[in-house]
Nucleic acid binder design. Structure first.
Length: 659
RNA sequence: GCCGAGGUAGCUCAGUGGCAGAGCAGCCGCCUUGUAAGCGGCAGGUCGUGGGUUCAAUCCCCACCCUCGGCUCCA
């Protein structure tokens, strides 16, 4: 019998394992250990992910994917998405299902419900219950390969599935489709009961009993194939984990993130607001928010001054002609505020500062000796973001860019980009970010202008700057702006979330459009290259990111109130006031609260406001010239000499701001 | 812009086709306080805006504005 023949498979540690022919990866896992078999969700066979139940061949290289790895969770989530679809199809007769991939931290599945019905929160509860039943039934996931014809028959009443099958077999599949079915001449499907079958490339867990630590999170609309002219589907988002504890931790992380929500903190801390009378996406800054913003801006100005930038200002409005020249009206008219008709022409609020900076450059003849010429402006721009996209400070209609435009020669380009990157990272580090990632965005043929040669040159310059820095980067194929390629810098915040902040963009177009020139050493006229560079990006957005990063606890150099002095009783108020004066003279931000309430209550209020230092002064302190120091996140120290505290404060502020 | 959920006091949130509710914050007293909520009182609302249905609308219907979760978009 061939079944009793032995074959060898190779394991990741280089060793071999002898198994009987016809065995699968699950058997291998079991032979290694029962714990591994229990944690296994799929396998990698000869560098390809495969089901645990797929038979192995002699000489196969096998490694086991366990549920607690990224790849394993991906499988769990994808399998859970299938169970979600199964439950929905059972509970909503006539529902059409579309695609349901695993995503970061979870999965989703998109449905088209009969009669335009939508899911309610109660539906989610019922669906979740049904999913648990499917998990309890421990249904096996059984893979099979079908010919396109067979597949079309199986999914005859599922038009979206048929569309996917047809696209895949016509070779027109995009990545999403291939993820569903694999691709090639046959399509793969997984059946996990008599009544439920779905297109899928796999792999899947061996049976639904391996799932169960999931939660359905929310329901949302989503366009079929992401096309806003296509049908609007109903999407259910869920999350799934390898254990109850891991699921719980994830939910706690979400709560943590919610506590840090900048909109919530901005209200609680009285930093800024979005009065509805102002209109959507427009903010007003309250004193406590404004002081932090001012400190950020002051710091930015100081760094730019030292970094060889020249400061400029430009108006908020410009004649339409300017944006015709720059190309903004052609490429971004829909994203601009509507025009104002005035007696001598049409005016638009500016969506960017670069056209103005080009005018400054062009105002007189420039010499190569002036280059690189670095212009810098905190320039407020207005963009007509669509109503549904507004999001606190992170997506806003009026905002201020820390915008700089650098004009340089082609020879200077690579060097300038490299030093720009250094500059950007050095400033970001000062705000507590030290985990960066980089993306190089390349040309989108349909949405761009300029010759291939110029694009290639600019892209190469950006790439060489990244390589000089010696960092990893990803490529954003077709993500560039219309005028040139760019490098985006993402940061990871204190709780591991990624934010896109800085951008460096090469631009050969605007110099062309504005006819910018310089006179070279050869006494000939040449065209400069322009670099766009936003560091914070938008001050508003950066402020929002910082607020979430610090969870509202700004470092002392940025804190709206750095020191609060609390007299124990009314008898100590005058003393407290004298300490306030003393610190205010040294430009520290300090206040005091009279002893109308009990000390504990006033301390609590200061803590909720996240004041870095609370000083308590009572009889002992008045006599001895000391203070009780209650630092944010630290231990109380009674009887600290006041001057000792001042020195500590000074060091804290200076170190924070790097001055 | 599209799908869904919302908008009640400064904040967080109850509530009802028939005089609008709480806690915190605020103000006024009392307490004189040593490291995260002392006690009492007062005040505070065109129930997002505008229409409609009704004897009566904060509640039901319509439109608009704004917010939230997504989708799409993001120079």
């Amino acid at each position: 019998m061939s079944g009793s023949a032995l074959i060898d498979v190779r394991l990741p540690d280089g060793s071999s394992k002898q198994i009987t022919e016809g065995s699968n990866a699950l058997d291998v896992a079991a032979a290694i250990g029962s714990r591994l078999a229990k944690a296994a969700v799929a396998a990698v066979v000869n560098d390809h992910e495969a089901d645990l139940t797929a038979p192995l061949a002699n000489g196969d290289r096998v490694s086991i994917i366990t549920a607690d790895s990224d790849a394993g969770r991906h499988v769990l989530r994808h399998s859970t998405a299938h169970v979600l679809a199964q439950a929905v199809l059972q509970l909503f007769p006539g529902a059409k299902f579309t695609i349901g991939p695993a995503i970061e931290d979870g999965f989703y599945y998109d449905f088209d419900l009969p009669g335009g019905r939508t899911f309610t929160d109660e539906d989610l509860v019922a669906i979740s219950e049904r999913m648990k039943q499917i998990v309890d039934a421990d249904q096996p996931f059984v893979r099979s390969e079908l010919s396109p014809k067979e597949a079309l028959h199986v999914f005859a009443d599922q038009p979206y599935k048929c569309e996917i099958i047809q696209r895949v077999t016509a070779g027109a599949a995009d990545d999403g489709d291939a993820g569903e079915v694999g691709g090639g001449d046959s399509v793969s499907v997984y059946r996990n009961s008599d009544t439920f079958v779905d297109l899928c490339r796999g792999p899947h867990v061996p049976s639904t009993g391996r799932l169960g630590h999931f939660a359905l999170m929310k329901v949302a609309g989503a366009y079929w194939r992401g096309n806003e002219k296509g049908p609007m589907l109903q999407r259910i988002y869920g999350t799934a984990w390898e254990s109850k504890a891991a699921l719980q931790e994830h939910l706690v992380r979400l709560e943590e993130a919610e506590k840090r929500d900048h909109r919530k903190l901005a209200t609680e801390m009285d930093l800024l607001s979005f009065p509805s009378e102002l209109g959507g996406g427009l903010a007003v800054w309250h004193p406590k928010g404004a002081i932090v913003r001012k400190l950020m801006e002051d710091y930015s100005r100081e760094r730019h001054q030292n970094g060889g930038y020249q400061f400029v200002y430009s108006p908020h409005l410009a004649n339409a002609q300017l944006f015709e020249t720059s190309g903004h009206l052609h490429f971004y008219k829909d994203g601009m505020y509507p025009p104002m008709e005035m007696d001598n022409g049409t005016y638009y609020p500016k969506p960017m500062n670069c056209p103005m900076h080009c005018l400054i450059y062009r105002d007189r003849q420039r010499s190569y000796r002036e280059l690189p010429l670095r212009l810098f402006e905190l320039g407020t721009v207005y963009r007509y973001e669509r109503a549904g996209t507004l999001h606190g400070l992170l997506r806003i209609r009026g905002f201020t860019q820390d915008d700089s435009h650098i004009f340089c020669t082609q020879e200077q380009l690579a060097e300038e980009i490299a030093s720009l990157l250094d500059f950007v990272l050095s400033v970001l580090r000062r705000f507590g970010f030290d985990d960066f990632s980089y993306k190089l965005s390349t040309r989108n043929k349909e949405k761009s202008v300029g010759s291939d040669e110029i694009w290639e040159k600019a892209t190469a310059a950006l790439r060489s700057a990244l390589e000089r820095l010696g960092v990893q980067y990803t490529i954003g194929e077709g993500d560039a702006a219309f005028y040139g390629p760019k490098i985006d810098v993402d940061v990871r915040d204190a709780i591991g979330r990624k934010w896109q902040l800085s951008t460096i963009q090469a631009d050969f177009q605007l110099p062309e459009r504005f006819g910018l020139e310089y006179v070279g050493a050869d006494n000939q006229r040449h065209r400069p290259i322009m670099l766009h560079r936003a560091l914070f990006g938008s001050i508003e957005r950066f402020f929002g990111v910082l607020l979430e990063h610090y969870g509202g606890s700004f470092p002392t150099w940025l804190a709206p109130v750095q020191v609060r002095i609390l007299p124990v009783t009314t008898a100590h108020e005058a003393h407290a006031a004298s300490l306030v004066d003393r610190l205010a003279k040294d430009c520290f931000r300090v206040d005091t609260i009279a002893a109308d309430e009990q000390l504990g209550k006033r301390i609590r209020a200061a803590k909720l406001e996240r004041v870095p230092y609370v000083l308590v002064v009572g009889d002992d302190d008045v006599k001895a010239g000391t203070v009780g120091v209650n630092p944010r996140g630290g231990e109380v120290q009674r009887d600290t000499p006041f001057e000792t505290f001042v020195e500590r404060l000074r060091v804290d502020v200076l170190e924070g701001s790097g001055r």
